[in-house]
């Protein structure tokens, strides 16, 4: 497979996954906004965290000084200048798919293409919440459908693997990012009683679509420790960080036929290092600030793995669009 095409597949998967995750976060926040009777200050903080998860708070602050929900939705869904806006993720993902079109299933392309045209149909200036809500649902469905097409019709070769690795890395980073933002919040408000934190951890579970799965496993009480263990080290939940890292490891190993070669050594080393850290981790023994450090470090590792991965398979130098999306995670 051409390196340029492999690169497109990898970024296509990341962009689809990112669009899905950001849609879910935004959608969960919009629902909470309707329910909660928060004070302004609380509401503002809640929006801050959503911006930080879906984009970059400092970039947002460069352009806007207020936290008006309409402005934020506009920024996260449609803004051209926000490289991680939903419109951009879909557009980039579609471009990626386009330049790999001859080797991906045509249903995959059609699905992404249709989502793109539907997103174009929403007026970028005069939208209403109903339209945005419909778009968020469409994006999530698009992601599910594309994954279904990939699972049910692609041969398990390098093409498939590059898509999968993009997806797992993106997912792991997003979960880490969500937890990182929530830990930071919990730490800042440590003077408040513990119960008050309930909402953060509930939101974290909702953001990764893990609330139902969590409830089945743990008593219907939501505690920081349980949520963190669940989302970091649970080996069965498909959005826990460890689950994703294990799948990156398995995918690379499969593609390399189980052998570590000269050129792939660095990549194996990098993933293994992360795996070992997980094995030695005792989430329950860690303090909030230590967790924050761990998650920070993990995000850096992910970045690093992405770079080594690109180097190992001669993926192209990032173009403008991928530079934009990569910077999201470089703190």
């Amino acid at each position: 497979m051409l390196s340029r095409v492999a690169d497109s597949l990898y970024w296509m998967a990341r962009n689809i996954e990112r669009a899905e995750n950001n849609s879910r976060v935004l959608s969960a926040r919009l629902i909470n906004m309707l329910e909660a009777s928060d004070t302004d200050a609380v509401a503002e903080r809640d929006w801050e965290e959503v911006i930080e998860i879906c984009s970059s708070l400092s970039d947002y602050k460069k352009e806007y000084s207020t936290f008006n929900p309409d402005t934020i939705v506009q920024y996260l869904a449609f803004q051209d200048g926000n490289p991680n806006s939903l419109a951009n993720c879909i557009g980039f993902g579609r471009d990626n798919a386009k330049s790999a079109r001859e080797i991906i299933p045509h249903e995959l392309w059609e699905c992404l293409n249709e989502c793109y045209w539907n997103s174009i149909d929403v007026d970028r200036q005069y939208w209403n919440l109903q339209e945005v809500d419909r778009l968020l649902r469409e994006i999530k469905l698009m992601s599910f459908t594309t994954q279904g097409v990939i699972e049910s019709s692609m041969t398990r070769d390098a093409t498939y693997t590059f898509i999968q690795i993009g997806k797992w890395l993106e997912r792991a980073e997003k979960t880490a990012r969500i937890l990182n933002v929530m830990c930071e919040k919990a730490r800042k408000e440590s003077e408040n009683p513990e119960e008050h934190h309930y909402y953060y951890w509930l939101a974290a579970l909702q953001f990764v679509n893990g609330h139902d799965a969590y409830l089945k496993k743990y008593p219907p009480a939501i505690s920081a420790k349980d949520v963190l263990s669940f989302l970091i080290t649970d080996g069965t939940f498909p959005r826990s960080i460890q689950y994703c890292v294990n799948h990156v490891w398995d995918s690379v190993k499969d593609m390399e036929g189980g052998k570590v070669s000269h050129y792939s050594e660095e990549l194996f080393d990098a993933i293994e290092r992360v795996k070992i850290e997980f094995d030695e981790m005792r989430i329950k023994d860690l303090q909030m600030h230590e967790l924050g450090e761990f998650l920070d470090q993990f995000q850096n590792h992910c970045n690093n793995i992405g770079h080594i991965f690109s180097k190992t398979y001669y993926l192209i130098e990032p173009t403008d669009s991928s530079v934009g999306v990569m910077t999201q995670y470089q703190n």
């Binding site: 497979m1 051409l2 390196s3 340029r4 492999a6 390098a158 590059f162 398979y313 001669y314 993926l315 192209i316």
Partner: peptide, 15 residues
């Protein structure tokens, strides 16, 4: 950009 010429032969850059 996917192609390169070396010793007057053409190659494509693959993974």
């Amino acid at each position: 950009r996917d192609l390169i010429v070396k010793d007057d032969c053409v190659f494509m850059k693959t993974i």
